[in-house]
Simulated assay, not measured.
Amino acid sequence: MDEAYMQVVMSIIMHAGNSKGLAHQALDAAKQGDFDAASDYMKQANDALADAHNVQTDLLTKEAQGEHTEVNLYMVHAQDHLMNAITYKDLVGEFIELYQTK
């Protein structure tokens, strides 16, 4: 496994983790009734997810062009982080809406 591969894996994990953390900050802000801050954090969470998605899209594009990407436990772990971040961000968005209706 080469360094470039590990950089891709770590990039996905890093961006996904940033997104999840920002979504959690949004949830904390919403609990305090600061919906402007919650909105700002959610925008940042979306941006971080877009960064992770762009890394993933690059992999998919290369795969479609015939450049096979090795799938191992590291890549599975990175994809797991990404999917969990997406799910968490989506749920936080729902919770924020609930807090706003209080």
Rank of each mutant, 00 (worst) to 15 (best):
N18E: 14
N18F: 08
N18C: 11
S19E: 07
K20R: 15
K20A: 10
K20G: 06
G21S: 15
G21E: 09
L22S: 07
A23Q: 04
A23P: 04
Q25S: 11
Q25D: 14
A26I: 09
A26F: 11
A26E: 15
L27A: 06
L27D: 13
D28H: 11
D28E: 15
D28C: 10
A29G: 12
A29H: 07
A30I: 08
A30M: 08
A30W: 10
K31W: 06
Q32L: 13
Q32C: 06
G33W: 14
G33E: 15
G33H: 15
D34M: 06
F35G: 12
F35T: 11
F35S: 11
D36P: 04
A37G: 06
A37R: 09
A37C: 07
A38P: 15
A38C: 07
S39E: 14
D40V: 08
Y41I: 03
Y41M: 12
Y41Q: 13
M42Y: 02
K43S: 07
K43F: 05
Q44H: 12
Q44I: 06
Q44P: 03
Q44Y: 06
A45K: 00
N46K: 03
N46G: 06
N46V: 00
A48F: 03
A48W: 01
A48S: 12
L49F: 00
A50T: 13
D51C: 01
D51T: 00
A52N: 01
A52R: 02
H53Q: 13
H53D: 02
H53W: 05
N54P: 09
Q56L: 03
Q56V: 00
Q56C: 01
T57D: 02
T57W: 00
T57C: 03
T57S: 12
D58N: 04
D58A: 03
D58Y: 01
L59M: 15
L59A: 07
L59Y: 00
T61G: 00
T61N: 01
K62W: 07
A64L: 15
A64Q: 06
Q65N: 14
Q65V: 06
G66H: 10
G66E: 05
G66L: 10
E67M: 14
E67F: 11
H68Y: 08
H68F: 13
T69H: 04
T69G: 01
T69F: 02
E70I: 15
V71E: 06
V71S: 04
V71W: 08
N72W: 10
L73E: 13
Y74M: 14
Y74V: 05
